[in-house]
Deep mutational scan, measured.
Amino acid sequence: QVATSTVRILGMTCQSCVKSIEDRISNLKGIISMKVSLEQGSATVKYVPSVVCLQQVCHQIGDMGFEASIAE
């Protein structure tokens, strides 16, 4: 089973930030795809909930120095 959710990301300033986040999160087990939008300050994450949760994704992004939260 696959889920798609949006994560809000604060602190991104350039495409390099976007690429860094996409590269790191895409390597997590259970992540199918991730598309980060600098303009919208968010990311669309396609993932397998039984393998990885959005809290883990937000935590990983937080470790990179950005502020991440699950969009309502």
Rank of each mutant, 00 (worst) to 15 (best):
Q1I: 07
Q1N: 07
Q1S: 07
V2M: 07
V2P: 06
A3T: 12
A3G: 04
A3N: 10
A3D: 06
A3H: 11
T4L: 12
T4F: 13
T4C: 15
T4N: 05
T4S: 07
T4Y: 11
T4H: 07
T4A: 04
S5P: 02
T6W: 14
T6F: 15
T6E: 09
V7H: 00
V7D: 03
V7I: 14
V7T: 00
V7F: 13
V7L: 15
R8S: 08
R8A: 07
I9N: 00
I9A: 00
I9E: 00
I9R: 01
I9S: 00
L10K: 13
L10Q: 09
L10I: 09
L10M: 11
L10N: 09
L10R: 14
L10V: 10
G11T: 03
G11M: 05
G11F: 06
G11H: 04
G11R: 04
M12K: 02
M12W: 05
M12E: 00
M12A: 00
M12F: 04
M12Y: 03
T13E: 08
T13C: 06
T13Q: 07
T13H: 13
T13N: 05
T13S: 09
T13A: 05
T13K: 14
T13D: 05
C14F: 04
C14M: 03
C14A: 03
C14Q: 02
C14T: 05
C14L: 04
C14W: 04
Q15E: 10
Q15Y: 14
Q15D: 10
Q15A: 11
Q15W: 10
Q15F: 13
Q15M: 15
S16K: 14
S16W: 06
S16V: 12
S16P: 04
S16H: 12
C17V: 05
C17F: 05
V18N: 02
V18L: 05
V18G: 06
V18A: 15
V18T: 06
K19Q: 10
K19D: 11
K19W: 11
S20G: 05
S20D: 12
S20Q: 14
I21N: 02
I21G: 02
I21A: 01
I21M: 02
I21E: 01
I21R: 03
E22P: 02
E22H: 07
D23G: 09
D23R: 14
D23F: 11
D23W: 12
R24K: 13
R24L: 06
I25P: 00
I25T: 03
I25C: 05
I25S: 01
I25R: 02
I25H: 01
S26E: 06
S26P: 01
S26F: 06
S26L: 10
S26M: 13
N27T: 12
N27S: 13
N27W: 07
N27D: 09
N27Q: 14
N27C: 06
L28K: 01
L28R: 02
L28I: 11
L28T: 06
L28A: 02
L28G: 01
L28D: 00
K29R: 13
K29G: 08
K29W: 13
K29E: 11
K29H: 10
K29C: 07
G30K: 04
G30E: 01
G30S: 03
G30N: 01
I31S: 01
I31L: 03
I31Y: 03
I31A: 00
I31C: 04
I31D: 00
I31P: 00
I32K: 04
I32S: 00
I32Y: 05
I32A: 00
I32L: 09
S33V: 05
S33Q: 09
S33E: 09
S33N: 07
S33T: 07
S33P: 00
M34D: 00
M34F: 15
M34E: 00
M34H: 00
M34Q: 00
M34P: 00
M34L: 09
M34T: 04
K35V: 11
K35D: 06
V36M: 04
V36N: 00
V36E: 00
V36Y: 02
V36F: 05
V36I: 13
S37K: 05
S37D: 10
S37I: 07
L38P: 03
L38D: 00
L38G: 01
L38M: 06
E39L: 13
E39C: 07
E39A: 11
Q40G: 10
Q40R: 14
Q40T: 12
Q40Y: 13
Q40I: 08
G41T: 05
G41N: 12
G41L: 08
G41W: 07
G41A: 14
G41V: 04
G41S: 13
G41E: 14
S42R: 11
S42C: 12
S42H: 08
S42L: 14
S42E: 12
S42Q: 11
S42P: 03
A43G: 13
A43P: 03
A43K: 01
A43N: 02
T44N: 07
T44G: 04
T44R: 13
T44P: 01
T44S: 09
T44D: 06
V45L: 13
V45N: 01
V45D: 02
V45W: 04
V45T: 01
V45R: 02
K46H: 11
K46L: 15
K46Y: 10
Y47P: 00
Y47I: 02
Y47A: 01
Y47G: 01
Y47N: 01
Y47V: 02
Y47F: 08
V48F: 15
V48Q: 12
V48S: 13
V48E: 15
V48C: 10
V48D: 15
P49E: 07
P49Y: 07
P49G: 04
S50Y: 08
V51Y: 06
V51R: 05
V51F: 07
V51Q: 10
V52L: 10
V52N: 00
V52E: 00
C53W: 08
C53N: 12
C53I: 08
C53F: 07
L54W: 06
L54V: 06
L54Y: 04
Q55T: 09
Q55L: 13
Q55M: 12
Q55I: 12
Q55P: 06
Q56I: 10
Q56D: 12
Q56G: 04
Q56R: 11
Q56N: 09
V57T: 01
V57M: 03
V57I: 14
V57K: 03
V57Q: 02
V57S: 01
V57P: 01
V57E: 02
C58F: 12
C58W: 07
C58N: 09
C58K: 13
C58A: 10
C58T: 11
C58M: 13
C58Q: 10
H59I: 14
H59F: 14
H59Y: 15
H59D: 15
H59V: 14
H59R: 15
Q60D: 10
Q60H: 09
Q60G: 04
Q60V: 15
I61E: 02
I61C: 04
I61N: 02
I61K: 05
I61W: 04
G62C: 12
G62A: 14
G62H: 13
G62D: 13
G62M: 15
D63V: 14
D63L: 15
D63Y: 11
M64Y: 02
M64P: 02
M64V: 03
M64G: 01
G65F: 05
G65W: 04
G65V: 04
G65H: 03
G65C: 04
G65E: 03
G65T: 03
G65D: 02
F66S: 01
F66M: 02
F66D: 02
F66Y: 12
E67W: 13
E67I: 13
A68F: 06
A68L: 05
S69M: 12
S69V: 11
S69E: 09
S69I: 12
I70S: 07
I70C: 14
I70H: 06
I70T: 07
I70V: 12
A71P: 13
A71M: 12
A71D: 13
A71K: 08
A71S: 11
A71W: 14
E72S: 11
E72F: 12
